[in-house]
Design a protein around this nucleic acid. Sequence first.
RNA 1: GUGGCUAUAGUUCAACGGUUAGAACGCCGGGUUGUGGUCCCGGUGAUGAGGGUUCGAUUCCCUCUAGCCACCCCA
Length: 462
Amino acid sequence: MPRTAKKNQKAKPVKNVINKAVKKRKDKFSRLRGMKDVLFDEQKYWDLVVRKANDLSCFYGFKKIQTPILEKLELYERSTGKVTDIVSKEMYSFIDKSGEKIALRPEATPGLVRSYIEHGMFSLPQPVKMFWMGPLFRHEKPQSGRYRQHTQFDLEIFGEASPIADAQLILIAYNFFSELQINVQIHINSVGCKECRKTYLEKLIEFYKERGKRSKFCNDCKKRFATNPLRLLDCKEESCQEVREDAPQLVDYLCDDCRDHFIKVLEYLDELDIPYNLNSFLVRGLDYYTRTVFEVISLEEMEEKGVSQKRQISLGGGGRYDDLVEYMGGQPTPGCGFGIGLERVILKIKEKNIPIKGDGGDFIFLAQLGEQSRRKMFLLFEEMRRAGFNVRQAFTKDSLKAQLEEADRLGTKYTLILGQKELLDGTIIIRDMESGIQEVIDYKKIYTELNKRIEERKNIDK
RNA sequence: GUGGCUAUAGUUCAACGGUUAGAACGCCGGGUUGUGGUCCCGGUGAUGAGGGUUCGAUUCCCUCUAGCCACCCCA
């Protein structure tokens, strides 16, 4: 193929003109901003992370569920919240051919709540514990660890009001990271229930109404004051943080039930020796949270202009949403869950050079010379595969050299070579790829000879 | 969405405004018409797009696009 392409290019008189035309076409079809191809070498990280998520979920009794990428726009407007950034600024939405407003899923929980309600899962034995994994879409400005399509691993527990559910989710998240050897901090807070949050918000607004305080707000906070005053708390602007210093704290205004719930969650975590940081300013950007909210943060030291700086990146987060199911039209059902961003997890694993076991099987490569032996090897390959051997081939290649090169790239242990001569003699060559030693054996003894060598190798490894 | 930095072969990097834009790795071919991983030789392949300044731009300026970083937000 490349050969003809080369010829064609050389045949044309003005190479540059063609290159430009080809390049324009290439640019035209380039991938969209913030989207990512996961290439061959990265797959091992995905395998690792996905396996870990699968194992943990299964172990703690979560059942796998899948939901559509497309949902009605209103689902997110109602659940995630119209005023949240995710819905108001970042959602991919469009009107489909039937005139329906559609959104590409920006968040996992709403779809799972919808599914819970739609399939009458309240009549299943409670709690219903869901394990979900899939792509999410948000139209943000991309940077490292931030894509417009990213993948989350998500666990949800429906129908369980006990604080042990909250604690168990945090435990699983903690295990996930520590078993992948990623250092994280868990930040935790309680945002209370409808009632206690109401009284708190009154106090907070009262506090901010005092003279001069609002003038220090950043532009965003001026808006937030009207739309979502709770979010004033986690603004990162310095001036806003200064004002915040003496602001009333949510924890002090929790009702008895909410305080009790929060304390129990912390006690369970203490019991398990899970480290956490109480962060009274932690308020998550989704409307539906009640009581427990938490975030998993990775701290990293950065060298910038000779000064070491600390940067934190959120790897996951979640919380309780006791009113959401009812609010979305279902039976009153408590719930809680969390999500973890897998691209960021993989980024961390790569950064830290955490070693990953290769799939290092003992490959056996089948090399052939000539049409006759190619046919025979074509068949032998299938026989050996069914017999349980880890076989590889490059039957499209003609030269032995090219085939051995391929075998080498794959990390083959033994190569079987069949040429015209061996075909006539009823023999075959076994080549040990490490030593280069070759032996001509009876074709019929392939299996016994191979097994013998594999056994010997095992003994040496021991 | 706001601000800063960047853009050269598939990849990582070179090139005082001036010959044919270099190298390493990769890939393809040859040395070996039946032998890989070492070695030797050869080939392949790039200035993100558009405009401007200039006799002349990879180099200077502008716009766009993309990437990175910070903010916002979030995973």
